[in-house]
Each structure stands twice: as C-alpha cells, then as structure tokens.
Nucleic acid binder design. Sequence first.
RNA 1: GGAUCGGUAGCUCAGCUGGAUAGAGCAUCAGCCUUCUAAGCUGAGGGUCAUUGGUUCGAAUCCAAUCCGAUUCACCA
Length: 608
Amino acid sequence: MRYLCSLYYKNKHIMKSLAEQVKVSAAKAFQSLFPEANVQENDILVNETKPEFKGDYTIVLFPFVKSLRQNPVALGNALGAWLVDNNELFTAHETVSGFLNLSVSDAYWSTFLSDYTLDTDTKDTSLSDKKVMVEYSSPNTNKPLHLGHLRNNFLGNAVAGIVAAAGAEVTKTCVVNDRGVHICKSMIAWQLFANGATPQSEGIKGDHFVGDYYVQFNDEYKRQIKELVAGGMEEKQAEQEAPIMKATQQMLVDWEAGKPEVMSLWNTMNSWVYEGFDTTYKAIGSTFDKIYYESNTYLLGKDLVEEGLAKGVFYQKEDGSVWIDLTTDGLDEKLVRRKDGTSVYITQDIGLAVEKQKEYGIEESIYVVGDEQNYHFKVLKLICQKLGLPAADGIYHLSYGMVELPTGKMKSREGTVVDADDLVAEMVRLAQEQTEAAGKTEGFSTEELAALYEMIGLGALKFYLLRVEPKKKMIFNPEESIDLHGFTATFIQYAHARICSVLRKTGYQATTVALDTHDIFPEEKALLVQLEQYPAILQQAAAELNPAALCNYSFKLAQAFNSFYDKCSIANAESAAKKQLRSEIASLTAKTLKHGLGLLGIGVPEKM
RNA sequence: GGAUCGGUAGCUCAGCUGGAUAGAGCAUCAGCCUUCUAAGCUGAGGGUCAUUGGUUCGAAUCCAAUCCGAUUCACCA
C-alpha cells in the first residue's frame, strides 16, 4: 500500500476532505510551476468530475488563463503532469477545454477506510466546545400543537443535534407562553361552560381539552358581538364591550395581581396542558434541557430600560413612554416601555437574552421562530447591540417559512388546522397499513412491529418537513407525505435495513487488515466518494443550520448504495478480498445513514 | 408606501461563495425478482431557471429595474 498520510493534518486526528486535499495539492502545483502568480488554495475551484468525463475531481482553469497567459489545455496539462508526478494521490489527468480532470488513486480508498472514524472526523474545529443555545418549540398553553409546531420542533431538535455533532456544547430550551390574554380566554370559557369538567372526566388529552375552551371562547365572543351589533352598537365598540371580553380583561388584571382563585385555575388548566404536551413531545422526540416560563420572565428587562435611558440609547416621550429610534438602521421607532410603565414583548426578550447568557455563558443563541417574526428579531438584536449587552452578537434568528396546505394556509376559523397528535397517529397508522400490505410483518413480535411502524411513520413525517430549506415556506401535501418511496426517510431506512440484513447473513466482522482497492468498481467508488464527503456535508449543515442539507445527502448516499447493491454482490463476491471490501463499504454506509438520520431525530431499523 | 423573503420540469424540491449538456423525487411510459430485502434497480419523455437589461471568457447563480406571491412595519404577543 502506498503512503498517502502526508496529506492529512499531522497534529489533528481530523482528516482533510478529499476535495480539500486536491485544493492543497493544486496550490502547490501552482506555486511550483508559476511562483510569480502566487495562487492560493482558496483561489482554486474544485468540483466532482461529471460522470461523462474520465476522472474524479476537476479543477476549473479559466480563472488563471488570463493572468498566467497560458492557454487552458497547456495549463491543464502542465498542472496535471506535475500533480501526477509529485503526488501519489493522483494517477491520471486529462484536460478537456478549461477543465483539468484528475483521477484519484485507488489506493487512497484503502487508506480512507482504515483511517476514517465517523465520530471524530465529523467535528468542525471552528465550533469545538462553543456554547450554543437552541430555543425552539415555544408553545402557547391555550391550544394543542399543530403542523406548524412540528416543523419548528423537528428543525430545532435537528439543528441542535447537528451543531452538537459538529462539536458544540448545546443547551436546548423552550420558552412557554403561559400567560396573557389568550390564556385567560380559555380560562373564562371553562368557567362559563365546563360545569367542572376536566380532561379526566371527559377522557380528552389535556391540551386538546383546554384548546376546546379557547375555541368556545371565540364562538361565544362572536355571538355576543353579533348580538350587540344587532342592538345598534358599532362593531368596533361591540368588540370591546362584549361581556366575555370584559371578563377576560378583568381576569388578566386579577392574574397580574395574583388573585388566589385566578392563580389556582390558571395553575390547574396549565397543568392539564403540560400533561398533554408531555405526551406529544415524547411522541415526537422533543427534549429540553431548560424550560423558561413567560410567567417568570415577562418582567425581565425592566431594569435594562432604565439603563438604556441612562446611556441615551432610549428616549422618553412626553407621555412617559420609552422608545428607541432605529430609523438610521433602516427600521422604525420601537416602543420598549408603555406610558403606564408596563413592559412590552420585546423588553422581556431583551431581559431573557441576558438571563440566558448569565446562566449558561452561551456564545451563540439560536432562536427557531417563524419568519413572521423576522422584524422582531432584527430589532431585538439591534437593541441588544446598542445596549452593549454581551449576549447581543450571538443572537441568531433561525427563521423558517410557514407550512401551507395544497388548499392554502391553515386557518383555525375554517378548521383546516392540522393537529400534531392526529397527524403523527395517522402517519404511524399508514406505516402499518403499508407494511402489512407489502407482507413484511413476518419475524417481528407485536412490540417490535409497533416500534417499527412508529419509526417509519414518524420518520417519514420528520423527513418530509426537514427536507425543505428552513427559510422557504413549504406545502404540506398529505398524499405525498405518506409516500414511502423516493426522496423519503423510508427509502433511507430501507437501505439501512438491507445492509444490516446482508451483513447478518454473511457474518460480517470488522477487519484491521488492509483492504484491496485495486480495480475498484464504479459503484464501489461512487459509494466511497459519497461516504468521504459526509464530514464536509455535516459541517456545512452546521454552518448553515440547515438540516435539509443532511436530508439531501442521506438520500444520495442511500441511492448510491442501492445501485451498488444491485450491481455488486457481497455474499457472492468475486473473491474473498472483494467480499471484505464491500462489507466494509456497506457497513460504513449503514453507520453513516444511522448517524445522519439520528441527528435529524429519525431512527433506522435493522430489518423492515 | 418602506423593509425582508421567495418565483427552477405537470407537482414537490435540490443546485445559488459565477464554471462542462440545469438535477432529484412524485406522476406518465418502457424494461428488471430460480442469486444478499423489488419500500429496490435501469432507461425514456418532460425546462424561455418569472421578465428585461447589465457585469464577463462564461450567469439559474452577481447587479439593476419590472411583474407575481408571502411576511412585516401595534402602547398585541
């Protein structure tokens, strides 16, 4: 075996990606052949060679043609010859128009398979031990979670996993909106209509139970407005005068005053909701290291208003309200304290940002929140920066687009909101239905089948919601989401199960013996090329906070495996050496798929 | 009106730090199960990359304008 390790970082275990190695080598070639041009690594563009050409990696020559006054073919030939002569990584070169196609030595892959480790090579040194907080989910305690929350939860959990895998120290948090007018609405409706009913007495999940009263509030509110308008009142006035609304506002005042009956009802109803949420979170795999409640945090940031005034960052209007002028930053004037001295939403967010920083010493704070709050977070960060808060620069709003249905937006008024619990249950049911229809239930116990259906159903749902880039809005097509073919988690899970099945049958054992990678098959190499790119993809996903990149990669890897599987038999390989090589490749593929989907919160079965 | 984001195949989406003939999946059509799991593989058809102009050796990608869609600009949260 030829020695290739000089190409790796000597002092770190982390291996340099093949594409990076090509860049480094090419830069050396340039330095040697054209020292006066001073070409740096980052000036060189390296792509995977298109399948219709011979080679593995391609250097684009056009950028250098002019400055070096060389014609592209001559330049390519010179560089290619130098690389093949001076670097054992390359075995052949060919220049086609302005592209230098380089063939990588078969022996490289043997080194790769023996040196590569999934856990350490995926680490990104720029993130190592960085303290990162991911805030996500953040529900209101007046209604159950819906499809939009699922995208948020899956995103938050996946991003936390990806960033942690890349080396960061991650704290997952959730800010529960457990107070305010909307909470009082459910409470009032319960007082009026429930006759003491509880989730237990009605046999309804707690969050749904409370959500039903929130709906009832709105029905009654509308009815009362109609009645008042019929009696000759203006609509605007009716909205304010409706008795149920007045009662709600009074309740909010009582809550803030800490009136015992109100606090007691509030505690009871919230506990019902939390019980329901716990079930949902458990089902979808959302976990949190720290939960903040707005009832505890809503007064935070008040002292910062005084500080801001003293610093001259804020100013006071004649009526006593406090503002910040952001017009020079292209934004508007923003209120930070009402004239009655109470604080507004953004004020507590400023306070909470400081609180998080104090408590956890975080350097990056990622907020997974829908894109309708883009403006809010822009303002939040700007204010924190102007106040000179240590938490300011680390604020990052991971903004994601709304989930829409093929019929348009989800509207609670029209009853088109897709409930999270219902959807999860439906996906699992469909997984069962399709597994049974395919006749793939043999050899499983009842418990194993239940676990499998959950893995498939939930996996399909998570993948479907994660495969689209976060910032883009997405269409949730129920028919498409239950499809278990093509660009889905099921496809990837299936590839994993196939690998496990083959390796079980062949009695695969990991080997430390050097693998023979001479005369490597195209399907074998294609798979190795994909596998080699995993650390780079993971680091990219972490840098972009983009789980979709991992979805795309995992699918491509599974696709490459399926082609390999079709063409290259493991059990009946041409030779013992081929069998061992293919087993190693297949094993690493399974590990990589499991690792990648695991970060997305998706499990992979060993048989299905 | 200002700001921000999006517009790529019939549908859902990749590709966007400029690079070879723009890619997947679904759907449609045609093949492949006496051999490791056919939830799979192989192939075909399908495109004015919203429009127009600019930058350059080269633009889906960068810039400008326009059109369409969404969000936002509360003493709400």
